[in-house]
């Protein structure tokens, strides 16, 4: 299979004056091109650490991360990182926010700008392009944040509990929305969550991590049709989430 991301035996320990915290121990997995992989694990187990390592923000103590055939050891502008809070810059208009990555990477050309704006257009935010983020609803902001990460065409999208700041109703519709955009654009994505239902409704595969130090406990294929809503209504959905829940528990 055509791999986009490979983690090979990645270990990481945080060093502080008070001592050492072992966060990851020998974590290995692959993500194929165009695949959507979800990671679940108990709180504090090292999920965010996995994403930071993939983004090159942290250097593994041991092991290697390979993104699209190249070893990652510093932020290279190849990942689109989406955080729990949308972190739109409140002093920039939506369109300026969306162009931010392009500007940072000095890739802002008429073509790239047109692409960014076509995304806004396609996903219903064109009329708000000149608005400030504070004037948009939580769901719209999350969509804008997603478009911002897509605008510079990253090789992989890293999503760190991107919906957890939203209330339950909004969360379902935004998840539906966001996963639709990711599928449409054919982006490879790695999602971190502690919500098993969310993982199963979005991922092609779900990686279950152990408590800290995180090791890969199991990798589960989700053999369901795509689309969160369709999945949640599928008769096997409960059985699969239960299986993952049991895996997390023991």
């Amino acid at each position: 299979m055509d791999e986009m991301l490979t983690l090979d035996n990645v270990s990481l320990s945080y060093q502080t004056i008070h001592g050492e915290t072992e966060a990851l121990r020998g974590v290995s997995f692959d993500v194929a091109k165009g695949e959507f992989v979800a990671i679940v694990g108990p709180s504090g187990c090292g999920k965010t650490t996995v994403l930071s390592v993939v983004a090159g923000l942290l250097k593994p103590t041991d092991g290697a991360v390979v993104l699209d055939g190249k070893r990652v050891d510093a932020p290279g502008g190849n990942v689109g990182y989406m955080l729990q809070k949308d972190t739109l810059f409140e002093w920039l208009t939506i369109s300026k926010n969306v162009e931010l990555g392009l500007k940072i990477q000095k890739k802002l050309t008429p073509e790239s700008r047109a692409y960014a704006h076509s995304l806004l257009e396609k996903y219903g935010l064109a009329e708000f392009a000149e608005h400030l983020p504070g004037q948009l609803s939580g769901g719209m902001r999350q969509r804008a944040a997603l478009i911002r990460t897509l605008a510079f065409r990253p090789k992989i999208l890293l999503l760190d509990e991107p919906f957890s700041a939203l209330d339950y109703q909004t969360r379902l519709s935004v998840a539906e929305n966001v996963s639709g955009i990711i599928r449409d654009e054919g982006v490879t994505a790695l999602l971190v969550t502690h919500d098993i239902g969310e993982a199963c409704s979005l991922g092609n595969r779900v990686i279950v991590l152990s408590p800290r130090p995180a090791t890969v406990r199991k990798i589960i294929d989700i053999p369901l049709p795509s689309g969160p809503e369709k999945r949640r209504e599928h008769k096997r959905f409960g059985e699969i989430t239960n299986g993952i829940w049991k895996e997390l528990k023991n």
Partner: peptide
């Protein structure tokens, strides 16, 4: 400046001066 914003910019590959220009100075206004 909000650490989240700095993290985001760093993940995009921003250097220290870009952090200053795009996040730190506007936040300190």
């Amino acid at each position: 400046t909000a650490p989240d914003k700095l993290l985001l910019l760093r993940s995009m590959g921003a250097n220290r001066f870009q952090l200053l220009r795009y996040a730190v100075l506007p936040s300190a206004l």
